[in-house]
Structures are given as C-alpha cells and as structure tokens.
Nucleic acid binder design. Structure first.
Lengths: 357, 357
DNA sequence: CAGCAACTCGTTAACGTTACCGAAGGTGCT
DNA sequence: AGCACCTTCGGTAACGTTAACGAGTTGCTG
C-alpha cells in the first residue's frame, strides 16, 4: 500500500486568536505570558482558543521584538599546555555566543587555572562583582564551587554545571555525561579487549588529584563492572600527580616494569602521554589502551593503533547546550526540563574521522 | 595567568548602513541581494560599508519578512512490519517540517514500499505531477531513481539523497554515513570480539536483495579490513531473502548448523531476528553478534547481552539535515557546502541508554 | 460625591528585513 | 515641446510579537 502524508500548516497567530476571542492582541499576549491585568473570564476564554487552535509562538518574531538585557557568565578552566580539552568546550560556548547574541544576550567568559585554586576564587569574585543573570560553571574545585554557588543563590543568580556535577548544588542542574556509566563503558570495552585473569592498570594523571572527585566516580563504575564479571582480573590503581612528561614517564617505567599490565585505562584526557610513552619505549610490550576525549593529540595515537578506544562526550556540544538551556530558561520561559545525561561516544581507528561532523 | 574574554557585539543593521552610505534602506537591500536597479557607483560604496562594518543579516527578521512559497517533497520507504528504521528518519523529517514551516516552506511526504518498485515509480510520478522546488530521496531502487532524478533535473527540481548514495547522481549530494567505513568499523570491532582463525558469518537479510547495493559496500569494507589483518578468519557470506521469521529461522538453522560461526555480522537493521533466533534455540552456542541501527527491537537484544555492538547513524538527524540543507540552499542562499559523511556511532550495553539524548 | 487606587483592556510604536509602488531624472523619438 | 521609456532610487506597508502608555470601569475612602 502506498501512501502520502500531507502536512497541514495553517500557522495561527496572535492576531487571529484575538479575533476569535473578541479581544485585542495585547490581551492575548498577556494570557500567553501569564501576565496579570486580565480577568479570569477572558483568560479562560483565550486559553481555550489557544489550546484548540494549537498555537505555536513564532520565535523569530519574538526574537525580533524582545529587547533583552540578559547577561551570562561562563566560568571554566583555561586550556592548559597539558590538554586541549577546554578549548573544545570553549568552542561550543562561542558558537552559542554567536547564536544568542541576536537575542540581545551578552556572555562573558572567565577562565581559571585548574591547577591553582586561587585563580578560581579570584574569577568567581570577578563574576560576583558584575551583575549576571546566570553563570555556567565547570566545578573542578568542589568546596570553593559550593561556596560560590551559595553566594549566587543569595543574589538570585542561576547556576548550571558542565563537565562534572556536584549533586544538588547548582540551581539549574548539570549538563554532561553520566560519569559512572563512562567508567562502566570503559570496563565493558576492557572485557572485549583482554581475556580473563588479565592485569589491568587504572591510571590517574593530573596535578592536584584531590580536586578531581569525578575521576573516582569513573573508577567506581569501572571496577564495579569488572568485579561483577568475576573474570579474575588483577587491577592496580595508580596516581601520577604531575604534568611533566619526563616525570610521568619515569613513574610509568617503574610501575609498568613491576606490574606489566595487559591493558591501561587512563581515567581522563591525558591518555596521549601514555601513547607517547609506548612510542618512545618500543622495547616494552604495548598493552591495550583506553582513554577519554577527542583531542588532537589523543586522536593521533588512535589513528596509529596505539590507543584502542577513546570514550568521548562532545565537550563543545556540552558548552553549547549549557547556554542553550539558559536561553530556553530565560527567553522561552520553559518549565524546568529534567535533562538527561549526554550520549557517551566510542571512537576507534575506524570511525574517528567522521566524529566532528 | 588568569584571563577574561570579552565579547563585543555591536550588531549593525541595514538601517545604519543606509545612513552611512547616504542612501535608503531599499538600496542597501538591493545591494545585499544582488538585485538590479542600482548604479555601479552606489553599489560599490554600499558594498564597501557592508564589508567594513562586518554586517551580518538578521535571519529572524528575514524569516519574518519573507513570504516564501517553497515546497519540498520527501520520497522515502514507509516503515515495514520488519523494521522501524524509516520511522526514525521520518521523525527527523517531521521535526524539520515543524521548524521550517515558520519560513513558509511546505513539505510533503511520499512513502513507498521498499519491496515493491512499482510503488516507487508511482510515488515518483506523483512527485513530478506537482511542482516542488526540491526532493529528498532515499535511493533504494537504483536504476529507477536515476531515471527519476534525470527527469527532476530537466524540470529544475533539486534533489538530495539520504541513507545511501548513488555517486554523482543527485544535484545536491548525499547526507548519510560513509557506508564502506561502517563495514570497516564492524570488522574492527569483530577483531576485538574473536581471536584469530575464527569463523565469521556475514548475513544479509532482506527481500529483493538485488536492490540493496549499499549492503555490498558495507561488506566490501568489512572483508577488506579483515583480509588486511591476515588473521586467518574463515568468512562465509549468506543471503536470506525473506521477511518471515520462520523462513529466516529455518535458513539460519541450516547454515549455522554446518558452519558454526563464532560471530555473525548482520549487514542491516534486521539483526534483531538473529537475536530472537538464539533466544529461541538456546541449545545452540550463541556467537558474538554485530548489527546496525538503534531500533527498539535491536536495543532489546543489546540490553540483554545478546547483541554485542550496534553500529548506528542517527537516521532522524539524517532526515532533519536533509531538510536543513535545502533550507540553507534556498533561504540563506548558501554557497554549495561540501558536506562530510555523518558520524558513525557505536552502541553497547553500557552506553545505549544515553543515545537518544 | 469627589478623589483615587486597582483592575482590565485596547492602541500603537517598535524590532530588521523584504518587496511593492511610484517619484525623479535622463534619453531618444516624433 | 510633448511623449514614451528606462534607470535609479526612496517611501512605506507588511511579517508576528512585545511592551509602553493610556483609557475605561469598578470599588473604596474620607
């Protein structure tokens, strides 16, 4: 049976509604925007017509008409020499700025040093010294972030987290992946890469590790999955609190020499240094490698087969979505959506080429 | 070093340009849209000012002002009882309809039966009998599609393909994944799932297989990757040209009994029937299974561990992007973009939950 | 009952762009 | 001179929505 679907598009406007309800367009506008100055009787009548006519507001007309004075702040780490991760997030933010500036929204970016809590405090004070309507935060420094958000709440500044979450802290929630699940996914892929009783090395590379609570969430997901499998894996967990390649390399040499893992799971985007390591010390048997994030330096080692899997979360989309959420919250007055965690992507040597499209 | 970035957003409009150039806004509009009725002298003057002021047109105002009369046709298979794949594509199409109807674009959907070429011919004639500006086509029936597109070209109707491509045929190109690469990716994952010298079964399940040229592209990618690996895999390729589960099951029983594969690669979205098969015949040793597409019935077998990997391509996004491309082409008068293939996603039991977000 | 607040509602000018209409000036022809 | 015609340009009404302003009504106070 063949079939043709017709799309009926008699877009109804505020004007027609007004005519149908025998009121002026201003009254319809008042009803639509839940403003006062309209009697219950007419409100009900207009609302009925709105509902049955399936009215959809013309966002373009609204964008044109409204002269907003909204301003948002973005408070995230600056890109360090060690990882380009935050550049990607910033890219999405800038796309958002481009798009939302048409609506009269101004957005200011504050970058702090994720290895220096003082810079975070300084930047957060800068944010408070101005008068923003909302702030996007990447909560690296947990306790300081909590203090900051509390102050925001007092001043009626909305807050939203990206990249990682502090449960119940921000006023508008969290946009990012479910970190526990990323750990489980890494474990799932691990189970495909190595046979039972293999030796697995969990590797945390970052200075100031005490701040990176979200790494532990990933590790919990990873180990819980593997323990359930009951395949007799031998798991070792190592911290290398450094950003210096030589320091990391020598530490790796020590641990790998004595443990000799079949697979290394790098818990953040620093996986490329492990790739570099095995590129340099070719006499050491290369284990399987799993890591995070679509960074140029990581992709290099994915493309030459050094890294097996990269687990990714589209940080640019994350940054964009944060602004988009604020836009919807303030401009479209959307009821608070309960956003779901972002997709978790798997990249291999065979599909990374198409990822950024 | 801490740092704050400022975004300067002095959006300049057509009115200011007119003032700067000492002309009316009508003239500026004429210059902007390359219309005639403006002298070379003033055109140059206005163009200079436009360039140096970095003018960006306000798309919302344009959308509001322009009363378009564009109409697009969408010509894709209807969802069969066998697979919900095309429903997803349709979902994206409908989202596009929703969004672009604001611009005065009307979109009509023509669904044909992918098992009956006559319905395709009938629908394509229906399309031609009306006067569309462009048509989105899923080219299942290769030769008939070529005939149809040629006729479209004669009538100045633009065409764009989704899901699979006929190289150089459509006037506006192709939106979808690189099919050869999806085959290679399946092979890549295969190499992780099974050891050397394993027995691999490539399974094509579809009626009228001669029409599904794109399945062969996937198979070429798959086998070429595996041959390069040189791991002594034993590969068998089987067609089951049926839509009836019992027929498929009995055929599977025959082949699996004699071949006893370690892994089955189902080349399209029909992978769930294989899951159902091994669910029913529990005495047969279940091989690893790789298949395509995020369909409810497939996800069911992904979630219970029957299927190891699903390779996906967001068909809804595909449908949406096709309409979005037409919108840009006609409305924004974008120069012809050379679009890149869509991302290829990998779904496992651990990340499928977040995919639709 | 004057006065004034509170409530309800309509009129209208914007927002930036497009497109129609016609004015002004020039050229060529009778 | 008169007329037709063309080129070049400006004026302006839309598009759908918002918000400032003010007009009309009611109810209450002193």
């Amino acid at each position: 049976m063949t079939m043709e679907e017709k799309t009926e598009n008699k877009k109804i406007g505020i004007k027609e509604i007004a005519k149908l309800a025998n009121v002026s367009i201003a009254t319809v506008d008042r009803v639509l925007n839940n403003r006062k100055d309209v009697s219950e009787a007419t409100r009900a009548k207009v609302q009925a017509i709105i509902k049955e006519s399936n009215y959809q507001p013309n966002l373009y007309a609204r964008a044109l008409s409204v002269k907003n004075n909204l301003s948002f702040a973005v408070l995230i780490p600056k890109t360090s020499s060690q990882t380009g991760y935050w550049d990607l997030c910033l890219k999405g933010i800038k796309q958002g700025i481009q798009e939302f500036s048409t609506f009269g929204i101004t957005i200011d970016i504050f970058l702090y040093d994720q290895e220096d809590v003082k810079t975070f405090i300084k930047m957060s004070e800068d944010v408070l010294s101005r008068n923003f309507n909302a702030v996007v935060i990447a909560p690296i420094f947990i306790s300081e972030t909590i203090v900051f958000v509390e102050e925001c709440k007092k001043r009626k500044i909305e807050s939203i987290f990206v990249n990682s979450d502090i449960k119940g802290c921000s006023s508008l929630g969290y946009i990012g992946p479910d970190l526990y699940s990323t750990g489980r996914l890494a474990a799932n892929l691990t189970s495909y890469l190595v046979p039972a009783k293999s030796k697995l090395l969990i590797l945390n590379i970052a200075r100031g590790l005490q701040n990176y609570a979200y790494l532990n969430t990933k590790i919990e997901g990873y180990t819980s999955y593997l323990n359930n499998l009951n395949k007799g894996f031998e798991i070792s967990n190592i911290d290398i609190p450094s950003n210096n390649y030589d320091e990391i390399a020598i530490d790796l040499l020590r641990h790998i020499g004595e443990f000799n893992p079949d697979l290394i799971f790098v818990t953040n985007s620093r996986v490329s240094v492990v790739g570099r390591f095995f590129n340099e010390f070719k006499h050491i048997k290369k284990p399987h490698i799993i890591g995070f994030d679509f960074l140029t330096e990581n992709v290099e080692f994915l493309s030459n087969g050094m890294i097996d899997f990269l687990i990714c979360q589209r940080p640019d989309k994350q940054g964009y979505l944060a602004l988009d959420y604020l836009y919807r919250h303030f401009l479209l007055k959307n009821e608070k959506e309960n956003f779901k965690p972002m997709p978790i992507d798997i990249l291999t040597i065979e599909n990374y080429l198409f990822y950024e499209n």
